[in-house]
């Protein structure tokens, strides 16, 4: 077993997920099987092979730096779960 319950809990913490005990067991088992399948890539010698960054060669396009209309604050806040004036409101941080 590569993936223990502890690994799952660590990764869930990084991903900002809280998992039930049952989910931890299920993901440990499933991720272990999936990663074991991934290990076949190690059979492939990739010495000297460059990794892919872009599939299609593209140059960075430039545009003129000019002011164009953008969303107004009301539109930007319309989907906010909670707001205060023109701010997004969140629970206490400290």
């Amino acid at each position: 077993m590569k993936i223990t319950r502890e690994t799952v809990l660590h990764v869930a913490g990084l991903a900002r997920l809280s998992l039930s005990a049952e989910e931890v067991d299920t993901y440990a088992r499933q991720l272990d099987a999936i990663l074991e399948y991934m290990d076949q890539l190690n059979a492939l010698d990739t010495t000297g092979v460059a990794h892919t960054e872009h599939v299609i060669p593209l140059e960075t396009p430039f545009r003129e730096d000019r002011v164009v209309p953008s969303l107004d604050p009301e539109q930007s806040l319309r989907n906010a779960p909670e707001r205060s004036g023109t701010f997004f409101k969140v629970p206490k941080i400290l």
Binding site: A15, L31, N42
Partner: peptide, 29 residues
């Protein structure tokens, strides 16, 4: 959630080269 977990794992410290970089190299092949 499964894919977020898998993706977070393969990008996490110590595993990036073994998984993500290796996969992008295989992508070239």
């Amino acid at each position: 959630k499964r894919r977020i977990m898998l993706g977070t794992y393969v990008l996490s410290s110590g595993y990036y080269d073994a998984y993500y970089r290796k996969a992008q190299t295989v992508r070239t092949l």
